[in-house]
Simulated scan of single mutants.
Amino acid sequence: MEWQEISGSSVLVPRYPIAVIHFLGGAFVGTAPNFTYRCLLEELAKEGYAIIATPFINTFDHLGIARNVLNRFEGILERLQTNTALGQGYLPIYGIGHSMGCKLHLLIGSLFSVERAGNILISFNNYPVKKAIPFLEQLEIEQYLNLEFTPSPDDTKLIIKQDYQIRRNLLIKFTQDNIDETTVLKPILDEKYPTLVALQTLSGNHLTPLSQEIKWETGEVFTPLDAVGQWVKQTLSRDLYRLKDEILRWLNPGRM
């Protein structure tokens, strides 16, 4: 099972897929999801989930980005259904987003007609421009240029409240994540689908989904540096695999 590039997206299709995941990463790191989120996505693929990871370039037009990644996803899915095992029967489709990727999935699920068995929203972030772009708030440029994302954070919340159509949702936040806004999102979704929204708080931080396998080879003599390296490896791996297990448990409770 190897990554393929199709229409600019990264695709990983297991031999016997049981579902499809449309993955959208965070701003900037979402430009190459098969590298930045490689470990997490490959672990999900090993469990039978076909991955379509759509990269995007961040602009102020978040609605335009949402429309673009959805169009690309649907074109790739149609192609895969024609040429691969994805076309051998019905497969549920799930959205997984991290940080800004959550906002994009929420816009897609609110403003476009899509079929989704559910969404997994990790470390939701809906900051305004002055907080999202480093140093902009200190420079006070936005008050002169009137810069803001489209839709704005307030408009995004209103759109979700009025139009979000995806009933089943898993929200994940991390204990050491100081830019997460999941606690703002959950009451909005609870009001729409009170019995179908789950929240899990896991150990880790905003970058946990990007963690990679660290290969730390010790020498003939185990040194204090080796001890630190092993501790870092175990900590990162532990948090990442807990995230993976929680995702799999929610996707298919009967398999865990």
Rank of each mutant, 00 (worst) to 15 (best):
Q81M: 11
N58L: 09
T84G: 08
I93R: 02
E217P: 14
D239T: 14
P55L: 03
T31Q: 12
L210Q: 15
N125F: 07
E47D: 08
Y90G: 00
S113Y: 04
Q212C: 12
S237V: 12
E5S: 14
I120A: 07
K130G: 02
E140I: 01
E217L: 15
T208R: 09
G118F: 09
Q200G: 03
K192S: 13
D177P: 13
H206I: 13
A32V: 10
D155K: 14
G48K: 04
V129H: 10
S10L: 08
L86S: 07
L63P: 01
T150M: 09
D245V: 09
E78R: 11
E74W: 03
K244P: 07
T150K: 10
R238L: 14
K244W: 14
L202A: 11
S123Y: 11
I133T: 04
N58A: 06
L251E: 10
A117N: 06
I65A: 04
Y37D: 03
S203A: 13
R242D: 06
A132R: 06
N146K: 14
R38Y: 11
K46L: 01
K173S: 07
D190A: 12
L121A: 04
M256Y: 00
L63E: 09
Q81H: 04
E213L: 15
M100F: 01
S7L: 14
G89P: 08
W216C: 11
